[in-house]
């Protein structure tokens, strides 16, 4: 008798639980949690962000502490990742470098995604002359090699971290604009968009709520790969002296300064390279998981 009562109770509970409206964000988080590789990716990103924030406490040496007696040392107990040609501790520089590299990666991709994405959405949704105007402008940007474009923007704005982010961001706007436009074009004639219009939804809400969520997959893939590209572009700018100025540590800049020693002291390039790789790896895992978690059709 009591057993039966318990069963009834739990059924009631289940019913109550399932008829309550669930929040969308919680739902996405719940689905993301089930994806182990996405969680690994998230963990990597969190560790990187924490190490960037806590850099002064983690790094055993300062960014510019030169130990000229111990230059070009291979990894040891004192210097976990060895030292560079000025005797600076590579591990400390990588930890400090994460502040700048992560900023460059995320913010420039953010700029490109927001500006490029909205331009693409507007072009695709409204079509006609506006579409032509925006996409021809994107074509002009695409016609210039992106590194050359970034160089000219930095040259015009002057160097510095902020301008590097703007330059790298602008140079990757066209690819986002194209991706978003393409998916908006296929989605805007769908019946559910027409249905949204029929109930009085305005254009902004249609784009943000009905079209963009359905075109998330290619955008997320492009963005996660874009972070890597942005870090490397910033490195390229640093290499030709237009980006972050020495001795500020930045992964890309460390990579290029280690290049001339690569034959005898590969650890100088290997560790910053590894740092970039791990960042990208974490972002890709997280991005893939996010893409799946945002798609209710893949729910398990």
């Amino acid at each position: 008798m009591t057993d039966q009562l318990n069963v009834n109770m739990s059924n009631e509970d289940i019913k109550k639980k399932s008829t309550k409206k669930r929040s969308q964000y919680l739902e996405v988080w719940r689905r993301l949690k089930q994806n182990k590789s996405a969680m690994v990716g998230l963990l990597i990103i969190i560790i990187l962000i924490l190490s960037a924030i806590l850099a002064p406490f983690i790094a055993p040496y300062g960014i510019d502490d030169q130990d000229l007696l111990n230059t070009l040392q291979t990894p040891s107990k004192d210097h976990w990742m060895g030292t560079d040609n000025f005797g600076r501790d590579i591990f400390s520089r990588i930890v400090y470098g994460s502040i700048i590299s992560l900023q460059v990666g995320f913010i420039s991709v953010g700029i490109a995604m927001i500006v490029g994405g909205s331009l693409g959405a507007i072009a695709g949704y409204y079509g006609g002359k506006l579409d032509n105007l925006i996409m021809r402008m994107m074509d002009i940007l695409l016609a210039i090699p992106s590194i050359l474009l970034a160089i000219s923007i930095v040259a015009a704005l002057g160097h510095g971290l902020k301008n590097v982010m703007i330059a790298v961001g602008i140079s990757s706007i066209p690819s986002y604009a194209r991706i978003v436009r393409a998916s908006v074009l296929t989605l805007k004639d769908q019946e559910f968009v027409e249905a949204a219009r029929a109930v009085g939804t305005n254009n902004t809400r249609i784009i943000l709520k009905h079209i963009i969520p359905n075109s998330m997959a290619p955008i997320i893939v492009q963005a996660t790969l874009g972070v890597a590209g942005a870090i490397l572009s910033a490195a390229g700018l640093s290499f030709i002296g237009l980006g972050i100025q020495l001795p500020t540590p930045e992964w890309g800049a460390m990579l290029s300064s280690g290049r001339q020693f690569i034959r005898d002291y590969p650890h100088m390039t290997a560790f910053p390279g590894l740092a970039i790789m791990i960042t990208i790896f974490g972002l890709n895992l997280l991005g893939d998981g996010l893409r799946d978690a945002l798609d209710p059709r893949l729910k398990n």
Binding site: K21, V199, G200, H210, N214
Partner: peptide, 28 residues
């Protein structure tokens, strides 16, 4: 109002049932 022919294409796959039904109430 309008009821569409294809009940597969006329509902946004990213929104839950309650969100789809609430949409007209929210936007108005």
């Amino acid at each position: 109002q309008i009821v569409f022919q294809d009940p597969f294409a006329s509902l946004n796959p990213r929104l839950s049932v309650s969100e789809i039904i609430a949409e007209p109430l929210i936007v108005n």
